[in-house]
Design a binder for these strands. Structure first.
Lengths: 195, 195
DNA sequence: CGGTTCCTTGAGGATGATCAACGAGGGTGG
DNA sequence: CCACCCTCGTTGATCATCCTCAAGGAACCG
């Protein structure tokens, strides 16, 4: 949970429901609001000239997203859409910045949040750029399995979604997964991937 | 300039000179220090299994680098080396965090810094992943020319360095640059690239 | 000058993208 | 309950792009 809901309400935050597929903000738009998910899921992504998607990330219950441009007066580098029907609480940029000023602990919280995001973006870049399909996918699986548990866990993404995260095509993902299965790096049961 | 030198000295920061090519920290190392460049240049990069480099970024006079892991107890995601003979002032993690606690304006400064870094990493990813060589290079040139000036400016990077930034091979960069020159998107005079 | 680093070009090859077709599963409405 | 549809997964064949390898040239520096 990022900012306490009580506090957000006190500052006149408004709650809005986005239908699945609805755009929350678009690439190159000016950033005017702080967004925090109360329920649902949001996807951030880019589309290139040929229509191929690159997924920057998914955000879930309690998480905020699209904050960096609020701090630095830059446009959004990606588009955010509701991946499911999603309830979002939003607060104007000015009030958000004021809350940070008045609550050092919240400011510190965002410092940590942004640090984690940079770290994960740096990891993502190095795990995709210059790497072969199997490596990219394995790195993706590792990153999305927070725990270091030895035991296998179900990966809740479709092959297309994995492709969008890794900059590959579906067919390439499928063929790489088959190879990884043969190498016992993953399991596939009933078309579901376990890592 | 990040943190005032006087303040750093007051907290017993130490100054160290790194010879060109010397490693400041390595990928997967624990983060124990805050680093700020007094003079010189530092490169952050990763090397993949086949020895190919991906450059995460260069840092110059007055800039700090490698801060995110200080906030979140993570290992460094990349290696930092002195690109030139470089003088760096370093402060222990604990004292760095204490300075932030005691100086809200500095904390805010880092919030802005990290926001800028995330933004730029998001841009880099979308400009590399799923994009063709010319597009990647053009995006790189645009990003490294801060000003929006119409006039051309000299790009101070070798073709190999551009390749390392964009995830391409030197030969591919050279061939793409030739094409871009023919399309008048860049100029090349005496082997030097202008954008 | 001699050496080093950087740039350039060509030929050939490998990898992942593309295109096309089909199969499997799950949900919905008649 | 079955038929249909829609999304997701799968496979094979072909293609294009970028990488690789090899060789040599240009610029720069002590």
């Amino acid at each position: 949970m990022q900012i306490d809901l009580e506090l957000l309400y006190k500052w006149d935050a408004i709650v809005k429901v986005y239908k699945k597929g609805e755009i929350v903000f678009s690439e190159d738009m000016k950033a005017n609001f702080y967004f925090q998910i109360m329920d649902g899921c949001v996807k951030m992504f880019n589309i290139n000239d040929t229509g191929k998607e690159f997924t920057q990330g998914y955000f879930f219950n309690g998480q905020s997203f699209g904050e960096p441009p609020l701090f630095i007066d830059e446009k959004y580098p990606a588009t955010a859409i509701a991946y499911l029907d999603t309830t979002i609480i939003k607060l104007s940029k000015e009030k958000f910045l004021k809350i940070l000023d008045e609550h050092p602990s919240i400011q510190k919280h965002f410092l940590n949040l942004l640090a984690r995001r940079i770290h994960s973006k740096a990891m993502t870049s190095k795990d995709i750029i210059n790497q072969n399909p199997s490596f990219r996918i394995l790195a993706f699986l590792k990153a999305h399995k927070k725990t270091d548990d030895a035991e296998r866990m179900l990966i809740p993404y479709t092959r297309q979604e994995i492709a969008n995260f890794t900059g590959l095509r579906v067919e390439t993902v499928i063929r790489a997964l088959t190879k990884l299965k043969a190498e016992k790096k993953i399991e596939i049961k009933n078309h579901k991937v376990y890592y």
